[in-house]
Design a protein around this nucleic acid. Structure first.
Lengths: 366, 366
DNA sequence: TAACTTTGTGAATCGTGAG
DNA sequence: TCTCACGATTCACAAAGTT
């Protein structure tokens, strides 16, 4: 395996599933190249004996070799190694999501902080149909925890606030998500009709993660690819993916699944954007275009204040002058003020916010 | 009045509030003497500047000295020390609950495991009325995490399964609890009418913890007593408590509060669950769950209009886009429109209102 | 009184682009 | 990299005030 590769020379193996250990595979990829990492690492469940339901049927638990760790120290070392390799790959404004349960998530969260990631939220996946606790010895384990973190403090991570708000019927998305577990037609089966992977995640979960924290064309990496839910949803949503998976059987199932996934058409991928993305219109343009006249009086939205428009696009009121924002903030004694929605003018006997004029200009521009 | 509980005849200071550092105070108590510990340690929030609401009012954040730690290492040492002292106090079959947020809970959880505690569940307190995210930069921080752990693996901890099932209208209690934050008459105020403590927990939370994991007559210790919610609920429920609190002002408020608390008679323990309205289902969930696909066309109930589904749960038709309700209203020139009954999709050659899909989700949820 | 409106507030790691 | 000005951004309740 070559160690030195120039950034320019290394092309990302987009939309492929890499075989092998995830740390080695990640170290072979170029640094600062990935927009989002979604990771569903082994949970280190530490199950002891078999568990049976009240009707004596046996619960098909996660007892695979890949979930066995000798001690917390071993698990911590494993976690630190892959989180470090992952962080190297992330672009400065990239982000990571990790999902886990109480068996491992506390160790993962602490390791994320220790490695320099900056936690943005923990998000609870509240299962609408969890497996009950058969023995009546604990609470129904009805949720899993996801951690969303940026590469470092102060990074400008992607967050499609308005799109998520739309998904949530117009109110901002909360840190608890109610979604059913993966079963029915979505649950992949092997040749025997058994589940192909013990912990397949629902596509709905990934839909929200990817819509919320990437843009179309971004690259999403999943170092514990499993049956490829991350890749499938990324592909549907017009993002590129890279999967890493150690087990050949899972890679095979995932490859077959991905071949059948189709990307949504471009218009459907368009998502409600933020107002910040709209072109900036200087207040002075309203005067230049004759929409407002120098000397005209504006009144505040609450009717309590007034100010006069000057030829250079500033306002003057009593002893303050400056931009529409500065004068509004000063008169209200507020730390800030959006002058566009604060100041109103009169037309045809009605009082209208000046933002209406900005909207007219923006409509002309588009 | 103090009762004698340990063999060595060291008396526990039952139903009192101890002053001073919690580690020192705990080390002065006899080992193996406590049935339950409930701990609400500092969260180490690491807030930077001021935060203002959109109406420019300032958020009264937790900036108290007791929540300031120099580094993660300092916080980890603090956590390890109090968890170790607490574990010494617990009876072999005793248990601990710790509450926290993403700022600290991962470090707390890892420390619990490192110190030999055995995690039984993590429990999510889903706040029904959390403070929103004002800048649109993250998800609403709508929950806190509690960890429930026994003193060691294999311990025979107390779990009143049937009592909790009754509290939950006859179905097994899940690991996510919906409860409002502490405000209104329950929120303690100081002489100025300001909140007496910045992070007072609701009694409902402690009610569930204490009913579920202690028996009448048990001793409940709270090493970060604050305004004494743990003590108040313990007393109501006929348990003994010991509080430890460093700040004199909090001790004073707590003492006054506790003096007015009466132990419940048996009937008043019965709490009737409020009847819930039908859960709100955002249209976006139909897409996340794969019931509708981005790009799919919907037709209006009258057959005259059509619109395309987008990935964020909005619709687009000709020149209008927005929620199912907005687009329906715009196309009909109506002031409002119930998109759930207005829009239809095709399945198996038939045209069906999308409300059918909402009903399916609601059926799963109940 | 009842119904309705306005105001206040809660454990918060809460900008961004031009120059 | 730093500075400065623009201007975007909130949900559920409860308490207080008004009709």
């Amino acid at each position: 395996m070559t160690k030195t590769r120039s950034k320019e020379a290394v092309a990302l193996p987009l939309n492929t599933i890499l075989a092998g250990d995830c740390v080695e595979a990640m170290n072979a990829l170029p640094e600062n190249s990935i927009d989002l990492i979604f990771a569903d690492p082994p949970y280190n469940l530490q199950l002891r004996g078999d568990l049976h339901r009240p009707d004596n049927s046996r619960v098909d638990a996660v007892d695979d070799a890949w979930d066995q760790f000798a001690s917390f120290e071993t698990y911590d070392r494993f976690t630190r190694d892959w989180l470090r390799a992952a962080r190297r790959l992330l672009k400065p404004n990239g982000a990571i999501w990790v999902i886990g349960s109480y068996h491992n998530i506390f160790r993962v969260g602490a390791a994320l902080q220790n490695e320099g990631y900056w936690i943005l939220n923990d998000v609870i996946w509240r299962k609408s149909n969890p497996m009950p606790n058969f023995r009546g010895k604990r609470f129904t384990n009805a949720h899993e925890t996801m951690i969303w973190a940026s590469k470092s403090e102060g990074a400008r991570y992607t967050f499609n606030y308005e799109a998520l708000k739309s998904l949530n019927e117009g109110v901002q998305m909360r840190s608890d998500w109610v979604l059913p577990i993966c079963n029915g037609g979505e649950r992949l089966k092997d040749a025997n009709g058994d589940k192909a992977h013990p912990t397949q995640k629902p596509e709905g979960l990934l839909h929200r993660v990817i819509v919320g924290s990437t843009n179309p064309g971004d690259v999403v990496l999943d170092p514990f690819f499993g049956t490829g839910t991350t890749g499938a949803v990324a592909k549907m949503l017009g993002r590129d993916f890279i999967g890493i998976e150690r087990e050949a059987a899972y890679r095979e199932v995932a490859a077959k699944r991905l071949a059948n996934v189709r990307k949504y058409d471009r218009e459907s991928l368009q998502v409600t954007g933020s107002k910040r993305a709209e072109p900036r219109v200087p207040f002075g343009q309203l005067i230049e275009r004759g929409m407002l006249r120098p000397g005209e009086m504006l009144t505040s939205i609450n009717g309590k204040r007034s100010a006069k428009v000057r030829a250079d696009g500033t306002l003057i009121a009593d002893d303050v002058k400056g931009s529409i924002h500065q004068v509004g903030a000063a008169l209200e004694g507020a730390p800030s003020c959006n002058g566009w929605t604060y100041w109103c003018f009169r037309r045809d006997g009605k009082t209208v916010p000046i933002d209406l004029l900005r909207q007219q200009i923006r409509a002309e521009m588009s």
